[in-house]
Amino acid sequence: MADEVTFFIDGRPCTAAAGDNLVEAAADNGVYIPTLCHYKGHKPLGTCRVCMVRVDGREAAACTFGVRDGMRVDVDAPELADARKALIELLFVERNHFCPACEKSGRCDLQAVAYHMHLTVPRFPYRYVPFTVENFAGKLLIDHNRCILCGRCEEFVRRGDSKVFAMKQRSSEARITVDLALLAEMSANEIAHAVHVCPVGAILAPGQGFDTPIGRRKYDTHRIGEITDGRD
């Protein structure tokens, strides 16, 4: 067991075990740092950058930092909140996030974080770039309109050591892809795990949309910062 250390969030003393993931340690101390790519208890990805804070005076993605004794973390500063909000806005305009028709609406982390930030309209223009929806033999769907390229599926959905999902291309051409041979071997439980790992509505299993009535969905009943494990 690592030593318990004291660190500071916006000047307030907090405690955690040395080396604890900063996003998780902050949550344990009652401070919500928004994130999309961080999957609690797993290795940090540092891809969405939405957990942007200042650590000892320098901008940093909180999920990629471990707590150190005496560490000073700024979370609440207006310019940091604005930068985090801008990142969410960049994700919204980059693809076509049409919430009213999304199976994941009401339990989507992107949407819930945007609510938390009181986002009513992005400062960036919408792009309306066409993206495809892929149906893999009725077993799995990938809606690229909604993918935020966080890399969670790539990292946390595996068969043995092999990646089931991978990222192809680069830049704004980057797309998530699935290995067909491995997909064919996946059980219903594994598929459900993949759907669960996706923080948005990009990876879906057929027949599971809109199964919870509006008003009773995950983020209808809780705000995202209130759900301490960041997931279900």
């Binding site: 309209v121 919408y126 066409p130």
Partner: peptide
């Protein structure tokens, strides 16, 4: 005041923007 998804981001009619 822009009210509702369509006023803010085009909404359902804007699905044609990608086509």
């Amino acid at each position: 005041v822009a009210v509702g998804a369509c006023a803010i981001n085009g909404g359902l009619p804007a699905l044609r923007n990608e086509i």
